[in-house]
């Protein structure tokens, strides 16, 4: 079977420094993959290269048979990036909710503006997702008045409403107070179990262990390991990986 998402040999340079140095991986439909690794190793950049919010110099990305990026050929075929991005959900570290819109407004904006849905249908669709993240009673609230955890759940609902083929999570809990992390992880775990295809950059080792099908360990722009969590967390891993895992387990209480 063709994989849902195919990322091939991505290379990206920032200020003369090679942040991504030939990254490849594939995702099956319904997969949850977690990308971990020391900071500055290009984890967030890699996510942004998948929907081309960041432009890599080299590589190829295929989503569900559609070419998203192809730097292997001289002249790239015409690609409707907006249409592709509407099929790729993205959840950000800082939520990035539209501050001038209510919860409902945030979730419906893409539906009415990008998908061209009628207002009434968009509201109906949005409410399903707002309910799914447990915020139906907050639908008229504005982002600035919500807690970080609530804001992040709204941003997940905003991504879900677009019916994405895959959702990219860019450190979704890193900006949250410790007591708010749980509510966001719960939503993410639920999504993973319901079969959403998810690619997550996170330091939440507990989440990675319990729901990730595979973990990609990035270090200095390269894939150091790409294997199921039980294998990565076993003692067979390289010293580099074990040291890092030990460190973040202490920090984030992975057990």
């Amino acid at each position: 079977m063709e994989p849902l998402l195919k990322v091939e040999n991505i290379e990206k340079t920032y200020d003369g420094k090679k942040v991504l140095n030939g990254i490849s991986f594939e995702m099956e439909k319904g997969n949850t993959k977690v990308i971990i690794g020391p900071s500055g190793t290009g984890k967030s950049t890699l996510l942004r290269c998948v929907n081309r919010l960041s432009e890599p110099e080299m590589g190829k990305v295929i989503l569900d048979g559609q070419v998203v990026l192809d730097k292997t050929v001289e002249k790239e075929p015409r690609i409707d990036l907006n249409a592709i991005r509407s099929q790729v959900g993205m959840v950000f570290q800082n939520f990035n909710l539209f501050t001038h819109l209510s919860v409902l407004g945030n979730v419906t904006l893409g539906l009415t503006q990008v998908k061209g849905m009628k207002r009434k249908d968009a509201v109906e669709r949005a409410m399903i997702e707002i309910d799914r993240v447990g915020l139906a009673d907050k639908k008229d609230a504005y982002p600035a008045l919500l807690s970080g955890g609530q804001q992040q759940r709204v941003s997940i609902a905003r991504a879900l409403a677009m019916d994405p083929k895959v959702i990219l999570f860019d450190e979704p809990t890193s900006a949250l107070d410790p007591e708010l992390i749980g509510e966001v992880l719960q939503v993410m775990i639920k999504l993973a179990k319901e079969g959403m295809t998810m690619l997550c950059v996170t330091h939440e080792i507990g989440f990675a262990r319990s729901v990730a099908d595979e973990i990609i360990f990035l270090d200095e722009g390269k894939v150091l390991a790409h294997e199921p969590p039980e294998q990565l967390f076993s003692n067979n891993s390289s010293a580099r990986i074990r040291t890092f895992l030990k460190k973040i387990s202490e920090l984030y209480g992975g057990e």
Binding site: N82, R85, S86, M90, H100, L109, G110, V114, S155, M162
Partner: peptide
């Protein structure tokens, strides 16, 4: 306006012009 607003708008598939109209200018 925080640059994340534009990034978020683009990430759901809005064109730059639409993002300016629907997200940036109202703020």
């Amino acid at each position: 306006i925080d640059s994340g607003q534009m990034v978020a708008a683009r990430s759901i598939g809005m064109s730059r012009i639409r993002a300016i109209k629907c997200v940036i200018l109202p703020q």
